[in-house]
Design a protein around this nucleic acid. Structure first.
Length: 424
RNA sequence: GGUGAGGUGGGUGAGUGGCUGAAACCAACAGUUUGCUAAACUGUCGUACUGGGCAACUGGUACCGAGGGUUCGAAUCCCUCCCUCACCGCCA
């Protein structure tokens, strides 16, 4: 949710940034500001009336105390008249506030000016490429065939137990998965991120806090009996730790990490991209989250990108880093970098991480502020997060890129966590 | 699931209709004292919206789990909902 005081002071900047989103009609900003103006006028009137009423009430109390009943009753009459007026204004004020809030909830975050303007994934900008291209032997297979023939992932049985998109990892497949999680968490904690194991279901308030609600209602699994949502990413429970809080300026940045399974309905995606591990309803992910000072959030974004890069480098995967264009930048984000690794057998780039600076967009929804040490005033924090990393596509890339005639060779860094060096 | 208790500022906790935006204590912060630490003393110490002023600052309104109601006036009375805690039952 955009910050209204910011919009008032920087309407032009806001419109310029918002206009980067394809097809977005920035006149909502003007409507919003007009509505805000009106609301403030109403409040001024309302406050004056309420103030008058409060004075009268106190007067009545005093008069009763002195036993001056008639005088008190006379003032009561007056107060009742006022009450009718305030009731009307109160209603107007509530309506105005509600409509402003619902307008605000629907406006996406402002892309940063440096974000490339564009419509779709086609317009994303590759900012870096790296890692070795893996040369495969003749007869190399895509990961879903490999995984099935090696018996490390049983898609059929996952399908039987739950449905498609819920793979069953078996034996070394399960162990490799666990090794990745352990390695990612160790790396993150070594970088100063505090490890959490959060709840896997969140309430509505948390969903609104990080912006999944109301925008992506249909993407989350909803446990209606208890009105809870299965987490689509650890970002939601982690960031919401700081919902409704005021942190000390010197405590920033706050660095958190967690491994969680992630649940996504992926409604509306069928067909080509869903083979094997490419797109799942349940998958594992280690997430990193930072709550940061506004002045430093972009520098912190860079450090998070560098950190994620170090992971794919150590895994020896061919990768590229994209800066998403304005049209592909998600609702809540102001700037996003995606990491893709190359799956050599299916010859496809797979997205394994998305690192974003949300600026104050989530903080405003969550009411997470910091108290300025200098002025003592409260300001919204900035929030950032990134996958570090999403497991299935990393698994897919490892399987495809590291396959040999003898089996899948485990990348060096994972061997201490696996206890084996080849899957055959 | 059953029964009982309760939700007040960062924490403990007082407050049953007007003098309470809220006592007291603790924590925190600033200062005095001090060789350092500690202690003591003094002061500051909720949030949001909003008016005036360039600003320092200074007015107003709202908020005592949430939403309604009674009343001139509600933290306090009434209703609904949510949540927490304790004990019992069930269970990893």
């Amino acid at each position: 949710m955009l910050d209204l005081p910011f919009l008032r002071q920087h309407a032009d900047e806001a419109k310029k940034r918002l206009a980067k989103r394809p097809g977005y009609d920035t006149s909502v900003i003007d409507e919003l500001l007009a509505a805000d103006d009106e609301r403030r006028q109403i409040q001024t009137q309302l406050d004056a009336l309420l103030s008058e009423q409060n004075i009268l009430s106190k007067e009545i109390g005093k008069l009763y105390g002195q036993g001056k009943k008639e005088e008190a009753d006379a003032i009561k009459e007056k107060s009742l008249e006022l009450k009718a007026q305030t009731g009307e204004l109160q209603k107007l004020h509530d309506e105005a506030s509600d409509s402003i809030r619902s307008m605000l909830l629907l406006i996406p975050n402002l892309p940063q000016l440096r974000v490339a303007t564009g419509k779709s994934a086609e317009d994303n900008v590759t900012v870096k490429e790296g890692g070795p291209r893996h040369q495969l032997y003749v007869g190399a297979r895509p990961h879903w065939e490999l995984a099935t023939s090696l018996g490390i992932i049983d898609f059929e049985t996952g399908n039987k137990i739950t449905g498609s998109g819920f793979p069953l990892y078996v034996g070394k497949g399960a162990r490799l998965q666990r090794a990745l999680i352990a390695w990612f968490l160790d790396k993150a904690t070594a970088q100063g991120f505090t490890e959490y194991m959060p709840p896997l279901m969140v309430n509505e308030d948390s969903g609104y806090g990080t912006g999944q609600l109301p925008d992506k209602e249909g993407q989350m699994y909803h446990v209606t009996a208890d009105n809870l949502y299965l987490v689509p990413t650890a970002e939601v429970p982690l960031t919401n730790i700081y919902r409704d809080t005021i942190v000390k300026e010197e405590d920033l940045p706050i660095k958190m990490t967690a491994y969680t399974p992630c649940f996504r309905r992926e409604a509306g995606s069928y067909g080509k991209d869903v083979r094997g591990l490419n797109r799942l309803h349940q998958f594992d992910k280690v997430e990193i989250v930072q709550i940061e000072h506004p002045d430093r959030s972009n520098a912190t974004l860079d450090s998070m990108v560098a950190y994620v890069e170090s992971l794919v480098v150590e895994l020896g995967l061919q990768y590229r880093i994209l800066q998403l264009c304005s049209g592909d930048t998600s609702f809540a984000s102001s700037i996003t970098y995606d990491f893709e690794v190359f799956a050599a057998a299916q010859e496809k780039w797979l997205e394994v991480s998305s690192v974003s600076n949300f600026e104050s967009f989530q903080a405003n929804r969550m009411k997470c502020r910091y108290k300025s040490a200098e002025t003592g005033k409260n300001h919204l924090v900035h929030t950032l997060n990134g996958s570090a990393l999403a497991l299935p596509r990393i698994m897919a890339a490892i399987m495809e890129n590291y396959q040999t005639e003898k089996g899948i060779v485990v990348p060096d860094v994972l061997r201490p966590f696996c206890g084996f060096h080849i899957i055959d």
